[in-house]
Design a protein around this nucleic acid. Structure first.
Lengths: 116, 116
DNA sequence: TATAGTAGTTTCCTAAAGGAAAGTAAGATA
DNA sequence: TATCTTACTTTCCTTTAGGAAACTACTATA
């Protein structure tokens, strides 16, 4: 008789990948982390370093990145106050991921370009 | 006089990362690639291997992954026909990315868990 | 004949993401 | 005094993602 075979189990990989996606989802979080990590610490500089990023979206994303302990918001000085955004050490753990994404993107663009 | 400093340039990294995100965006694409790569080649098996994945979403994502040359859809046999989904060799280039995501997710879960 | 499996499609709906534009409150600068 | 800069917020709107449920057409099996 035919044996009903269940699907192969891939949850060992799928679950942690989904945990990661829950943190860095969307178009903007990784670009913002990259920009801040490279040294852009002012709201306006971060915004201007990433084409298409609007202040509304940036403010929302920065709040979420703060909650995940990836970015730190610091108020500096008295009058005038400065707001500085800096990358937490924990954000450095994303470096291998960011480079894997960068490398794949570079390769993919070459592939698509040469295919035309 | 005060010199207006422009933001530091991070486009060399941000642009390719965004190219990558355009291909593997959303909750489901990487999980589907993982499931197919591991050997789940039937529609129903892929669906059942990923909790929460509905047939409508799976059908749509598979079409997009086909367009990006990551997954191949093959019709096998005459009557009854079988539909097989397999990973293209190009999907293997995502392996470093998938492992970077898996590793980060495992570590993140440990961090969150131990922090409670 | 009835039920189950395969590979989806269709409809309806909600929530979240994202974008455009303008506004705001503070101090700084000309 | 008027304009500029900074760091946002607010409103309005559209698009996309995603989920629930039912349905379809075909074959297989009990």
């Amino acid at each position: 008789m035919a044996v009903k075979k269940g699907p192969l189990n891939c949850l060992d990989t799928v679950k942690p990948v989904r945990d990661t996606l829950d943190v860095i989802n969307g178009k903007w979080k990784l670009p913002i982390i990259i920009s801040v990590s490279i040294g852009n610490d002012r709201f306006t500089d971060i915004q201007e370093s990433i084409p298409g990023l609007t202040p509304k979206v940036l403010a929302k994303e920065l709040k979420e990145l703060e909650e995940h302990k990836l970015i730190k918001r610091t108020v500096v000085g008295d009058y005038p106050v400065k707001i500085l955004y800096t990358a937490e050490p924990y954000a450095d753990t994303l470096t291998p991921l960011i480079y894997a994404m960068k490398d794949w993107g570079v390769n993919h663009r070459n592939k698509v370009f040469s295919a035309e």
